[in-house]
Amino acid sequence: MQGVVKVNSALNMRSGPGSNYGVIGTLRNNDKVEIIKEVDGWYEIRFNGKVGYASKSYITIVN
């Protein structure tokens, strides 16, 4: 499943599904990501070869 990031500035990509996990990357508005699965309001995603987590509130699913 594919998604597009929708933010005003930047979205942190984290090592786990929560804001208490470390930041491993930064996503920008309109970045395209691969959604692997949903975990407690977060998406596990793949972006630029990295796998991490981002809040699903800021990612819109596209077909």
Rank of each mutant, 00 (worst) to 15 (best):
M1E: 07
M1I: 15
M1T: 13
M1D: 07
M1R: 10
M1H: 13
M1L: 14
M1Y: 15
M1S: 08
M1N: 13
M1C: 05
Q2F: 11
Q2E: 11
Q2W: 14
Q2T: 10
Q2D: 09
Q2K: 11
Q2Y: 12
G3W: 03
G3H: 03
G3F: 03
G3L: 03
G3T: 03
G3M: 03
G3N: 02
G3R: 01
V4E: 12
V4G: 02
V4W: 10
V4S: 07
V4I: 15
V4Q: 11
V4F: 06
V4D: 03
V5A: 04
V5D: 01
V5F: 01
V5L: 04
V5H: 02
K6M: 14
K6T: 15
K6W: 06
K6S: 10
V7I: 15
V7H: 08
V7F: 07
V7G: 10
V7N: 09
V7A: 09
V7P: 04
V7L: 05
V7T: 13
V7W: 04
N8V: 15
S9H: 15
S9E: 14
S9A: 11
S9V: 11
S9N: 13
S9D: 15
S9T: 15
A10I: 15
A10T: 06
A10R: 14
A10F: 11
A10D: 12
A10H: 13
L11D: 03
L11M: 11
L11P: 03
L11G: 04
N12M: 10
N12R: 14
N12P: 15
N12H: 09
N12S: 12
N12E: 10
M13G: 01
M13N: 01
M13W: 08
M13T: 03
M13S: 02
M13R: 00
M13D: 00
R14L: 14
R14M: 15
R14S: 07
S15F: 08
S15A: 13
S15M: 06
S15N: 13
S15C: 05
G16D: 02
G16K: 03
G16P: 00
G16C: 03
G16V: 01
G16N: 03
G16W: 02
G16A: 03
G16I: 00
G16E: 02
G16M: 02
P17F: 01
P17C: 02
P17T: 02
P17H: 02
P17R: 02
P17E: 01
G18C: 03
G18T: 03
G18R: 03
S19A: 13
S19I: 14
S19D: 13
S19F: 13
S19C: 06
N20A: 12
N20K: 15
N20L: 14
N20M: 14
N20S: 14
N20R: 09
N20P: 04
N20Y: 12
Y21E: 03
Y21K: 02
Y21V: 01
Y21L: 02
Y21I: 01
Y21F: 15
Y21G: 02
Y21D: 03
G22D: 09
G22C: 05
G22M: 08
G22T: 11
G22R: 14
G22K: 14
G22L: 13
G22N: 14
V23E: 05
V23Q: 05
V23M: 06
V23C: 04
V23L: 06
I24L: 09
I24R: 03
I24V: 13
I24E: 04
I24G: 02
I24D: 03
I24N: 07
I24W: 02
G25K: 07
G25I: 06
G25L: 09
G25S: 10
G25F: 13
G25Q: 11
G25V: 11
G25M: 14
T26V: 15
T26A: 10
T26H: 13
T26I: 13
T26N: 08
T26M: 15
T26K: 07
T26C: 05
L27G: 01
L27Q: 01
L27W: 01
R28Y: 15
R28W: 13
R28S: 14
R28D: 15
R28K: 12
R28M: 14
N29Y: 08
N29L: 06
N29T: 06
N29S: 13
N29H: 11
N29D: 15
N29F: 08
N30R: 06
N30S: 11
N30T: 07
N30M: 13
D31S: 06
D31K: 03
D31L: 04
D31E: 11
D31T: 14
D31G: 03
D31R: 03
K32P: 12
K32G: 11
K32Q: 07
K32I: 09
K32T: 14
K32F: 08
K32W: 09
K32N: 15
V33C: 04
V33Y: 02
V33P: 03
V33L: 08
E34D: 15
E34M: 07
E34L: 12
E34H: 10
E34W: 11
E34F: 12
I35T: 02
I35R: 00
I35E: 00
I35N: 01
I35H: 01
I35G: 01
I35A: 02
I36P: 01
I36S: 06
I36G: 04
I36H: 08
I36C: 04
I36K: 06
K37L: 09
K37P: 00
K37G: 08
K37V: 10
K37W: 05
K37R: 15
K37F: 08
K37M: 08
E38Q: 09
E38H: 06
E38D: 07
E38N: 05
E38L: 09
E38P: 05
V39Q: 09
V39W: 10
V39M: 08
V39C: 04
V39T: 08
V39R: 09
V39P: 00
D40Q: 10
D40V: 07
D40Y: 07
D40M: 14
D40G: 11
D40S: 14
G41Y: 05
G41N: 12
G41W: 06
G41L: 09
G41Q: 10
W42V: 01
W42A: 01
W42D: 02
W42M: 03
W42G: 00
W42S: 02
Y43E: 00
Y43K: 01
Y43T: 02
Y43H: 02
Y43I: 04
Y43M: 06
Y43C: 04
Y43A: 03
Y43V: 05
Y43S: 02
E44N: 11
E44A: 12
E44C: 05
I45F: 09
I45V: 14
I45H: 00
I45W: 00
I45C: 04
I45A: 03
R46S: 09
R46Q: 12
R46W: 11
R46M: 12
R46E: 13
R46P: 05
R46H: 14
R46A: 07
R46L: 08
F47K: 06
F47D: 03
F47M: 07
F47R: 06
F47I: 14
F47A: 12
N48T: 10
N48F: 11
N48Y: 08
N48A: 13
N48R: 08
G49E: 11
G49T: 12
G49M: 12
K50M: 10
K50L: 15
K50E: 09
K50A: 14
K50H: 11
K50P: 02
K50V: 13
V51K: 12
V51Y: 15
V51D: 07
V51L: 13
V51E: 08
V51M: 11
V51W: 10
G52P: 00
G52D: 00
G52E: 00
G52L: 01
G52K: 00
G52M: 02
Y53S: 00
Y53M: 02
Y53A: 01
Y53E: 00
Y53I: 00
A54N: 00
A54Y: 01
A54S: 09
A54W: 00
S55W: 12
S55C: 05
S55R: 09
S55N: 13
S55E: 15
S55I: 14
K56F: 05
K56C: 04
K56H: 10
S57I: 15
S57G: 06
S57Y: 10
S57K: 12
S57N: 14
S57C: 05
S57P: 15
S57V: 12
S57Q: 14
S57M: 08
Y58N: 15
Y58M: 09
Y58P: 03
Y58K: 12
Y58A: 11
Y58W: 10
I59A: 02
I59S: 01
I59N: 01
I59R: 00
I59Y: 01
I59T: 02
I59P: 00
I59E: 00
I59H: 00
T60D: 15
T60F: 13
T60A: 14
T60C: 05
T60Q: 12
I61W: 05
I61L: 13
I61Q: 07
I61T: 07
I61N: 08
I61F: 06
V62K: 08
V62S: 12
V62G: 08
V62C: 05
N63A: 13
N63T: 15
N63Y: 04
N63W: 03
N63C: 06
